[in-house]
Design a protein around this nucleic acid. Structure first.
Lengths: 223, 223
DNA sequence: CCCCTATTCATACAAACGTTTGAATTAACT
DNA sequence: AGTTAATTCAAACGTTTGTATGAATAGGGG
């Protein structure tokens, strides 16, 4: 059964920057679990596989996290914090709305492209039925909100064309998430040569340009 | 274990349009399996869940398909054929390259948005590590090739701006796949009101416009 | 009616699953 | 050295997993 999410409101998030303190074993377990969950999914990853990869005892997951599902949630939360931060930073940067949108898209793609486990886990959540885990939902909803506000700002000062700001934000978000995930298989499928990191950089440039072009207001419309 | 794909070259595909003939039970199994695989993933779906949903005996999967994995491959192949056909039709339609790109994006999004299992299964394949199943790879590679050739055609006649046609094709493809999958969760996350089908239609319009704007050559560049 | 092939069915199997248990080990403090 | 708490460990628990088996049930031609 896929982890479902009884509200479990016993959880603090107000400060958005708590330093979770964990034993070394717990850290190692989370690192191993991240890789395996991203590669094979939640149901496809056994507790035994995780503990073996981490060099820990089979009972370590139950002892340190309580259950496999709790470990999964901890992993999910741990990766979404930096993703949210990445977007927040680029969002608060200098420049016009369009320029900031460009840097959000490029930065996000570069970040995720180098940690492919992150977007993979996000996509796994999105592509199952039922609502994604609340921690995923919160991050996505926050990031979409920031992107939408950038779009609206640009629409107000006339540099961004009219259109539904929410859908525009979704399109912006889909580029980094989708492309960072397909980058690796794409090298084989489409026969793209070269180093993986170089491809990510090219993709970041491309996606940012693609996004800006799609949004900017024409200088010479029929007005 | 996620289905891996020993080449298994004993498989005919030349004609691209074989009418697979199956018993009614096999058909029912595939329909039930499609829904469950898309909802919970391969590892998260048990043979018992499939046969129960199909109203068939537990042994039916082994008898009709040989194994759970073979059933999965049959399901995968069955959904990718119509997806490939959808793209091929829009690709061969009338109009300029940009207009045909617009209708590929819109048609694909409308099609997938109404059969969410299709893009879900595709994304599941893409978001695991390791190469996707060959049948997925072939469809994606074919579709990307068609999109890329449209882009190149438009670049030749000057209606599409310069840029890497392969990356452009990937961006085009990512819009329908990604948006059709996130449509449902997005209604809750972003609080989009209205009927699901109406949202799909709005998304199709939006994504097509987004794509065309991103690609078209400016009439008034500094040339 | 009988035989033959195709399909369904209940049941069984070994393997893998997440979790529990209680003893062994480690580390810190008195 | 002695006490206590935290952690690790090997083993076992009861389920659930995918697949195999052999008997039961059809449905046509002879």
């Amino acid at each position: 059964m896929v982890p479902t999410f009884v509200p479990s409101d016993a959880h603090v998030d107000s400060g958005d920057d708590e330093r979770e303190v964990r034993s070394p074993t717990a850290e190692t377990l989370m690192e191993a679990a991240l890789v395996l969950f991203a590669a094979r999914g939640y149901a496809g990853t056994s507790v035994r596989a995780i503990t073996e990869a981490a060099g820990a005892n089979l009972a370590a997951v139950t002892y340190h996290f309580g259950s496999k599902e709790a470990l999964f949630e901890a992993v999910l939360a741990s990766i979404l914090v930096p993703v949210g931060r990445e977007i927040r930073q680029a969002h608060q940067g200098p420049g016009s709305p369009l320029e900031r949108i460009r840097s959000v898209v490029a930065a996000l793609l570069r970040y995720m492209g180098r940690q492919p486990e992150y977007p993979r886990l996000m996509l796994q959540q999105l592509s199952s039925t039922g609502l994604p885990h609340p921690v995923v939902r919160r991050t996505i909803s926050g990031s979409l909100g920031r992107l939408r506000s950038l779009v609206e700002e640009g629409q107000r000062d006339g540099t961004i064309r009219p259109g539904d700001p929410t859908l525009m934000a979704v399109s912006l978000m889909s580029q980094p998430v989708h492309m960072s995930v397909v980058a690796r298989p794409l090298q084989e499928i489409a026969g793209i040569p070269g180093e993986a990191d170089a491809l990510i950089d090219r993709m970041a440039e491309h996606a940012a340009e693609f996004a800006v072009r799609a949004l900017e207001a024409r200088e010479e419309t029929n007005a």
